[in-house]
Design a protein around this nucleic acid. Structure first.
Lengths: 325, 325
DNA sequence: TTGTATGCGTTATCAG
DNA sequence: CTGATAACGCATACAA
């Protein structure tokens, strides 16, 4: 790889001059500018961003930790985040933590060593506030870690209310909520709270099952939902905490010979692409993934630039009525 | 952020010594080793990988370009690639090209500037051989660019034959293939070739539609499949080039009041997670995504280490019989 | 308008 | 066993 030195030699100038045309700084004659450009062209020169970053003390890299991009919600979210980051001149270092605490820890250390300018956390089992001693800019999804760390979330409580209310309005007599692991202390737990509240307000029998901690694996979904139906044959309404879970619920209903939505109404959460693709298509609570990704990038960059940003960033949710409820 | 200098000062030694304990090189007394470790601990020191990379001329970063991780196949593939890369001490810089040539070009330039040690291309509209003048290690998916650049692919031809043969065996009289854009010169086009061959060998009427170039967008799938059915009401078998396309095909069948699999048999490709989740579950051709991701990482690392690697890497495919055919 | 020297944080060479 | 110093590629004071 040619360096700035090679370009300087070829153009017959000093490295300073080359650096100047590279960054458009200070005065340079058109003649030398041409020469330098020519030399860069000839050598197919590309400035070494590692060296630049080292000097500038800024890498223009954002670390992004999610459970896994193989989960459609995070796949879609990461896609948008990367899009907006690149647009703003930032690169994404991708980490799939699989919700393993040890791996998260390793990832955060790694990202710090690599001088990322900021951290977007779509996943966290550990309390990063204590862990990231440095004042590395951070944005989290669905979790309030401290007053100092801004977070982005959909209006989980409202989403839970809308979903549960719809089940009640449909006349469901026994409803179930399938949640993520409640010990993780995510804001998503508010969906559960809202579920319980609405159910009790309306005197509807209700039950909840949650996924196990430290596991982010589709296969367990089917099992726990299967067990749920075995234990409660009379469930006629389900509010699943993700569209993927809802899809598994549909499948299990089928196994038990229960028709959706005739026998069992099902509502998901997220509104990922496949929600509309499934048959029956999934009625769900929409999270504005694109806008959330855009804001995540905006918040992290503003922090990098030393600006203050709002801490609570709650996006409204909307009910998307389809076929399952 | 504390530097090696701070550690040296705190421990009362030179930076050389600190570097030595950091890298376990040369002889150092246990006493000083302890002191240094203590100082590192106290300062919560993390070595600056930017500086290391600059000196070593090696970033341990792999650039990864895919159309988009929001597509389930690439989401799953990227997840596995990142997993194996991290395991081997490499980081992933993620790029979603959306099959836009200009963006791919920008990404490749960016990745070169950032001194990635290698490039994994899950997407490419341009001929990188000419573009990447440097001898940057590369591995591609589903595309043979030159004798020098190794590629990984599933046995597309065999997969196409298996799928089409199954349709024929089911007694389909008019079958359709939904392919990606054939101009892209991907090995996936062999699915199309096999489709045509098997159809003609068996004297079965057949038709093909392809997605437009430079577009990687779910929404067009529905439209072109809808148009296909409008033009050919008598289609009774479909071989879709991805499970997502297959899912859209199911949906469109529904729109036209045609039952799957009674009226129309459908076979997908990839065997992504949701293929088994859909209702009806999708009969498909399995690509071993995990193994392919693992090999991609292995091939890129071996190249980085200056080793020779095989050029053609074709993985066997298997038919996964489910409900749609 | 251009060039020289220094430093970003790290590692390796070479002396002590 | 340990320490000064140059170098990795680049950008900025400071001179000229």
């Amino acid at each position: 790889m040619p360096t700035i030195k090679d370009v300087a030699k070829k153009a017959g100038v000093s490295v300073t001059t080359v650096s100047r045309v590279l960054n458009n700084r200070g005065y340079i004659s058109d003649a030398t500018r041409q020469k330098v450009h020519q030399a860069m062209e000839d050598l197919n020169y590309q400035p070494n961003e590692l060296a630049r970053s080292l000097y500038r003390q800024k890498s223009n890299i954002i670390g992004l930790i999610v459970p896994t991009v193989s989960h459609p919600f995070f796949g879609e979210l990461v896609s948008r985040i990367e899009y907006y980051a690149f647009r703003a001149g930032y690169k994404i270092l991708l980490c799939n933590s699989h919700l393993e605490q040890e791996k998260e820890k390793d990832y955060i250390d790694m990202l710090r060593r690599n001088q990322v300018d900021g951290l977007i956390l779509g996943s966290h089992t550990l309390d990063v506030e204590e862990y990231v001693l440095s004042k590395l800019p951070i944005v989290t999804f669905d979790r309030c870690i401290s007053d100092a760390i801004p977070y982005i979330a959909s209006d989980n409580y409202e989403g839970g209310r809308i979903a549960t209310t719809l089940l009640v309005e449909h006349g469901c007599n026994k409803i179930a909520h399938i949640s993520g692991n409640l010990e993780l202390d995510l804001l998503a737990n508010k969906r559960y709270e809202a579920f319980v509240e609405v159910a009790e307000e309306n005197d509807v029998e209700h039950v909840n099952i949650e996924t196990s901690i430290n596991v982010f694996d589709d296969t367990q979904y089917e099992k726990i939902i299967f067990d749920l139906f075995k234990a409660h044959q009379d469930i006629d309404g389900i509010f699943a905490s993700s569209d993927v879970m809802a899809a598994y619920a549909i499948k299990v209903c089928h196994t038990f010979g229960r028709k959706v939505p005739e026998d069992v109404k099902i509502i998901g959460y997220d509104d990922i692409n496949i929600a509309s693709l499934m048959m029956p298509s999934i009625t769900t609570i929409n999270q504005p993934i694109d806008e959330m990704g855009e804001l995540a990038v905006e918040l992290i960059i503003k922090q990098i630039e030393g600006k203050k940003v709002p801490t609570k960033n709650i996006f409204p949710v909307t009910l998307v009525k389809r076929e399952t409820a």
